[in-house]
């Protein structure tokens, strides 16, 4: 009960408070501050509700393994810029382990991989976007498992969304405010990156979804997750 209340406190009290202090203290760059804090806060309810649940040690270790795999994948493809299997592994985890596991794998992968690749103001945004990409994949799981077409479509969408979302951050970060013109400029210059994201997601989902999915299912049945 306490946790539930604390989640509501976070959502109803802290976020408006953050907006208020942000506007008061950091006139010029308030949007950066507010968006950063909200990106962090929107992950908090997921973490808290996971903390509250009892007896999911097996799920915890499976999530840890998937995070480690996605970070290892980022290492493996280090020489090829933007061509990374992280989103694909997050989506696959979400499909077979549920939306919550997808969110956790996504957002925690961001933290772990940034421990290796360098943490900075972009970490909360990566946590947010990878987490939610995993979460929605989990919600759409039935459809995505059944048809490869929709799975690949989700891969494309995820690549585009990831890039568009991170570009909002780029614009806020560089200009201190948001303007459609600057956003369009960044977006146009990001087109090649968006394409690489989308293509890499599709390739990795196409190759990895079935084998990793089968293994996850097997573990799920064998150990009764």
């Amino acid at each position: 009960m306490f946790k539930k209340i604390s989640i509501y406190i976070v959502l109803l009290l802290v976020i408006p408070l953050v907006i208020a202090t942000g506007t008061m203290l950091f006139e010029g760059r308030r949007f950066v501050f507010i968006s950063l804090v909200i990106a962090v806060l929107s992950c908090v309810p997921f973490f808290l509700s996971f903390e509250k649940k009892q007896g999911n040690t097996k799920k915890m270790v499976v999530i840890a393994v998937m995070i480690a795999l996605s970070v290892a994948g980022r290492f493996l493809f280090y020489p090829i810029p933007f061509f990374k299997p992280v989103t694909a592994i997050v989506v696959i985890t979400a499909l077979y382990m549920g939306a919550e596991a997808g969110f956790l794998t996504g957002s925690l992968s961001a933290i772990i991989s940034d421990i290796y690749f360098g943490q900075g103001p972009w970490t909360p945004f990566q946590m947010f976007i990878w987490g939610f990409l995993g979460f929605f994949a989990g919600l759409l799981a039935q459809k995505l498992i059944k048809s490869r077409f929709w799975l690949c479509a989700y891969g494309v969408l995820a690549g585009v969304l990831f890039s568009l979302f991170m570009d909002i951050w780029t614009v806020l970060w560089k200009d201190g405010g948001f303007s459609t013109g600057a956003y369009a400029q960044v977006m146009i210059s990001a087109v090649p990156v968006i394409i690489i994201y989308a293509v890499s997601n599709v390739i990795f989902l196409f190759i990895l979804a079935k084998p990793i999915g089968e293994k996850l299912l097997r573990v799920k049945i064998k150990y009764g997750l």
């Binding site: 973490f47 808290l48 480690a68 925690l108």
Partner: peptide, 27 residues
């Protein structure tokens, strides 16, 4: 990092520390 968040979110930080340990283990 793990020490800082271990008290507030014990399960999440356990996942993080396990994932950190798995990476060299996988190698």
């Amino acid at each position: 990092f793990i020490y800082l968040f271990g008290k507030a979110v014990p399960k999440i930080s356990l996942i993080l520390s396990m994932a950190l340990r798995f990476i060299p283990l996988f190698k």
